[in-house]
């Protein structure tokens, strides 16, 4: 950790799955536990850190989030909260899923929490058929099996198709 603070002005390069490179200040990258662990264990000798699961559009969003949170002092929690809600506003489900994937992979807990919460809020009152489509899940129940699970929990489906 001490070395991370000493080298505060250093930068590192992250490479997205589609080949775009991002130059990031170290204190911003430290918002990610994955990158922090890599830096702590001296894996940073490589010039470029590849992030094969994250495309450039998502990585840009993730780094925007990390920069805001790294630069803000702890006394600005209110400002960060409004940044967070503005950050996810108008984001479609595809982009939210990509953010969850990226935050999960890079271990950025705050970002994972807000993106997961936004998805949970969106699907909370949706019928299961619609949730299946949103998550691209294939229904492997037979109609009889599905009806049986539904019947077992009939109360939870009141008001749903």
């Amino acid at each position: 950790m001490a070395s991370s603070i000493e080298n505060n002005n250093e930068k590192l390069t992250l490479k997205s799955s589609d080949g775009e490179e991002f130059l990031v200040e170290k204190h911003v990258a430290l918002q990610s536990t994955l990158l922090q662990n890599m830096l702590d264990s001296d894996c940073s000798s490589a010039d470029v850190i590849p992030l094969p699961k994250i495309d450039a559009r998502t990585l840009a969003l993730v780094l925007g989030y990390c920069k805001k949170h790294a630069d803000a002092s702890s006394s600005k929690q209110g400002e960060l909260n409004s940044f967070d809600s503005e950050f996810l506003k108008d984001m479609d489900m595809g982009a939210l899923f990509n953010l969850v994937l990226a935050a999960n992979f890079m271990e950025i807990k705050g970002l994972l929490d807000i993106a997961a919460q936004k998805i949970a809020d969106t699907i909370k009152d949706k019928p299961h058929q619609e949730v299946r489509e949103i998550f691209h899940v294939e229904n492997d129940y037979t109609p009889e099996e599905e009806a049986a699970v539904r019947e077992e929990n009939r109360w939870a489906f009141e008001g749903f198709p």
Partner: peptide, 17 residues
């Protein structure tokens, strides 16, 4: 994501797959 949902939604989402 799923741990953030209320129990009623989870009971219903058992029908997803």
């Amino acid at each position: 994501i799923l741990t953030l949902l209320p129990p009623k939604s989870l009971v219903q989402l058992r029908c997803v797959c």
